[in-house]
């Protein structure tokens, strides 16, 4: 069974890759078909994930402890949302106004605000945690670009108009590109390992 899963995974990967790189109509059609199957599987996986979420919190509810109340609220909210969306549809004003705009958006926005505070606090404590050349360079570049990019009440000559854009477009972009290239190479080799069945996270190993 594990061998069959590995063979199937490799076959599908090769077909999709071929359909992407080789513009043959047959290959493109197979690729589209496999992509559709993949999308279906991804949706099903989302449902399985939802079931996993419910099961975990149901077990917490039965086990008791500090997480019992939160698990109960989560289970209640999840089931209520599921039932309401089934009844009224996802584009219903009830769902949109009360659930999305009334609960989800404020919560996530507040967490984003908390993240901003955490970022500033982490920046303030950076020298206490670690002090080396890289840390000093990081601090200096952060201050420099904050000054350059921020809309200041005052204008700093040459900084906002020339220096900051050049540094951003050249140095920052180049450094970011370098990191992204390295990540791309890592993605490439990770995909190769999957393609060649060296890595079999689907239980084939």
């Amino acid at each position: 069974m594990r061998l069959l899963a590995a063979v199937l995974a490799v076959l599908v990967a090769v077909l999709v890759l071929a359909g992407t790189l080789i513009p043959l109509p047959a290959l493109v059609a197979i690729r589209f078909l496999l992509l559709q199957w993949g999308v279906l599987l991804a949706g099903t996986a989302a449902l399985v994930g939802f079931y996993n979420l419910l099961a975990v919190h149901w077990r917490n509810l039965r086990k008791g402890g500090l997480q019992t109340l939160y698990s109960f609220i989560l289970l209640l909210a999840a089931l209520a949302t599921f039932i309401l969306v089934l009844l009224f549809g996802s584009d219903s004003p009830l769902i949109h106004t009360w659930l999305v705009l009334g609960i989800i958006r404020p919560v996530e926005a507040s967490l984003m605000g908390l993240l901003s505070i955490t970022l500033i606090y982490a920046l303030a404590r950076l020298t206490r945690r670690r002090l080396d050349l890289l840390t000093v360079l990081f601090l200096l570049s952060a201050f420099f670009f904050l000054l350059a990019m921020a809309p200041l009440p005052f204008q700093i000559p040459l900084l906002s108009d020339f220096l900051a854009p050049w540094l951003q477009n050249v140095l920052v972009t180049a450094g970011a590109r370098g990191l992204l290239l390295g990540i791309a190479l890592g993605v490439l080799t990770a995909g190769l390992r999957l393609l060649l069945a060296v890595d079999r996270p689907y239980g084939g190993k």
């Binding site: 970022l119 982490a122 945690r129 670690r130 990081f138 990191l179 390295g182 990540i183 190479l185």
Partner: peptide, 18 residues
């Protein structure tokens, strides 16, 4: 990665994840 540099004792950059 930029955020982790300010917090993690040993940050990992770029493809070190892979």
């Amino acid at each position: 990665q930029a955020a982790l540099f300010t917090l993690a004792p040993h940050p990992l950059f770029g493809e070190e994840l892979f």
